[in-house]
């Protein structure tokens, strides 16, 4: 009742077509990013400039401060990187996607693309943070994993919120208002886990990591279930 006949058919088609559709939409986002490089470089510049400002303000912060700053910066990077994913689509183009793709495929492609973007950006900001602000990290391997997991969690939640903000015809500011309380539990868990990665004696609690993964899966499921309602104008 919600989807138009074309989109409804797309769901009933076999999985191979769904995969191909997701892949095509994903590739379209990637191509756009490669062709309109200004936005990509914009995020890079944002990361570089923020970390440089921090470097000017404080040198060699202690582990707790480093940890807090790192995750807050991740949060802002994510808002900036992900916000445009839905806001950049004009009304006409959304109408076009609406007629050729199913909402599930569309949102999954967006989630995949933003995850990839955010994973790359997290790695970059980790590198810059370690370069400029020193590195209190004790367990490098687990912490890198944690940063990737955190970047992924952030990107998933904010992709969905970007869809809401875009539909509400609001700017990125409303995304921060909507997103901060929602992301707080995950951010708290991530900060706690990374504190364990800094201390040589603490082990990283596996069930907290699993809880984060479970939350991510829940966000994906919710996005797939709820996006069709946002999609129709």
């Amino acid at each position: 009742m919600l989807m138009n006949p074309v989109a409804g058919n797309a769901i009933t088609k076999n999985n191979m077509t769904a995969f191909r559709q997701i892949y095509t939409l994903f590739k379209k986002d990637l191509l756009l990013e490669v062709r309109q490089q200004y936005s990509f470089y914009g995020i890079l510049l944002y990361i570089g400039a923020t970390i440089f400002v921090l470097y000017m303000a404080i040198n060699e912060p202690e582990a707790k401060v480093w940890n807090g700053l790192f995750w807050v910066i991740q949060l802002f990077i994510c808002i900036n990187a992900v916000a445009k994913s839905f806001l950049q689509e004009s009304r006409g183009r959304m109408l076009y996607f609406y007629s050729i793709a199913s909402p599930r495929d569309f949102v999954l492609a967006k989630l995949m693309f933003n995850s990839l973007l955010m994973l790359a950006m997290s790695m970059l900001s980790l590198l810059l943070f370690s370069l400029f602000l020193g590195s209190p990290i004790n367990k490098v391997g687990p912490f890198v994993g944690l940063v990737l997991l955190g970047g992924w969690s952030l990107s998933l939640v904010f992709t969905f919120l970007a869809a809401i903000a875009a539909k509400a015809q609001q700017n990125a500011a409303i995304m921060a208002v909507l997103g901060f309380p929602i992301i707080l539990p995950q951010l708290l868990l991530l900060m706690r886990l990374s504190n364990a990665a800094f201390a040589p004696l603490l082990t990283i609690p596996l069930n907290t990591v699993l809880l984060l993964v479970a939350l991510d899966i829940m966000v994906i499921l919710l996005a797939v279930i709820l996006f069709p309602f946002l999609w129709k104008d």
């Binding site: 809401i164 609001q170 409303i174 909507l178 901060f180 709820l226 309602f229 946002l230 104008d233």
Partner: peptide, 30 residues
């Protein structure tokens, strides 16, 4: 509170109801 802010920021009645319902479900899950 964010739910109320979002809800009141949209003027169109149908859109407001739909978007805030979606956010409500998402927010409850989180």
């Amino acid at each position: 509170f964010a739910y109320l802010v979002l809800r009141d920021s949209i003027n169109d009645m149908d859109k407001r109801a739909r978007i805030s319902a979606v956010y409500n479900i998402f927010a409850y899950a989180m």
